[in-house]
Simulated scan of single mutants.
Amino acid sequence: MKAVILAGGLGVRLRPYTLLAPKPMLPLGDRPLLEHMIEWLKAQGVSEFVIAVGYMRKAIEDYFEDGSDLGVKIEYARSKRPMGTAGQLKTAEHLIDGRFVLLYGDVLPRADLGPMLDFHGRKGALATMMLMKYYTRIRYGLVDAAEDGRLLRWSEKPEVGGWVNVGCYVMERDFLRYIPDGVPYGMDAAFRAAMEAGEPIYAYKSEGEFVDIGDRESYLRASREFLREMGEIP
């Protein structure tokens, strides 16, 4: 089974950092995020990778080359413009020959992938999305008021959360037929198209946590966490 990693986005929310390097190559500790992702998947038994590249692709290709230094095989699917998550996956179609794991290039799950793979197989799913619990504290007080203005409820800076998509999927190759060729396309649109067609689409609630570097605040928080694990900061 192969893994496909989407690593071609512009990383607009991470500028100015991504003016110097593509988002998956930003360092976390002593290695870029993308290397952490490959090592995580390798530990789950994945040895063949397709990295979908675009923006500043040479930085990725020159660093990883064919993957032999990491003990894996890496191929590259290239796009010349931003394609959206599903559109970028479509560029890798010719390199996919069966069931595969898909991972967005700005997230690192910290969980066992095995139970999700078993779940996907038991359900006969076309695509399975990994969910994890996420909580955040709102900066403002939440207030409920009646139609006449009477104050009903006031929660000061409450913590809210639930199950969220962490950008990790198990898919069958046939899922790609719901993604049009050569146009930018979002993964949410592809999932809706498959569900409307009655395909077996599932979500798996995973125990674990995930590292996200989707914006500057998230990246700085993750970077501090990795440095702390290395013992470099208190």
Score class of each variant (00 low, 15 high):
K2N: 00
G9M: 01
G9I: 02
G9R: 02
L10H: 10
L10S: 11
L10A: 11
G11N: 05
G11P: 02
L14K: 07
R15H: 08
T18Q: 03
A21C: 09
D30K: 06
R31P: 01
R31C: 04
L33F: 06
M37V: 06
Q44N: 12
G45K: 00
F49C: 09
V53N: 02
V53E: 01
I60A: 01
D69I: 14
D69F: 12
D69L: 12
D69R: 14
E75C: 09
R78N: 06
T85W: 08
A86W: 07
A86M: 05
G87A: 12
Q88A: 14
K90D: 11
T91P: 08
A92M: 00
A92R: 00
A92G: 07
E93T: 10
F100D: 00
V101K: 00
V101W: 00
L102Y: 05
D106M: 01
D106K: 00
R110I: 08
G114C: 13
D118G: 14
F119L: 08
H120C: 00
H120I: 01
G121K: 10
G124K: 06
A127W: 05
L131S: 15
M132N: 01
K133G: 05
Y134P: 04
Y134V: 12
Y135G: 08
Y135T: 12
T136G: 14
R137A: 11
R139F: 13
L142N: 06
A146V: 07
D148T: 11
W154C: 11
E156K: 15
G167M: 06
C168N: 03
C168L: 12
Y169L: 06
V170C: 04
R173D: 11
L176G: 09
L176W: 03
Y178R: 08
P180R: 02
P180A: 05
G182I: 13
P184N: 04
G186H: 13
A189Y: 15
F191N: 07
A194L: 10
M195I: 11
E196F: 08
E199I: 11
I201H: 10
Y202N: 10
Y204N: 07
K205E: 15
E207S: 10
G208E: 14
F210I: 07
V211C: 07
D212N: 09
D212C: 11
I213R: 02
I213G: 01
G214Y: 11
D215F: 15
D215Q: 05
R216N: 15
R216A: 15
Y219W: 04
A222E: 04
E225R: 08
F226T: 00
F226N: 05
L227K: 09
E229C: 08
G231K: 02
G231R: 05
E232I: 09
E232D: 04
I233L: 10
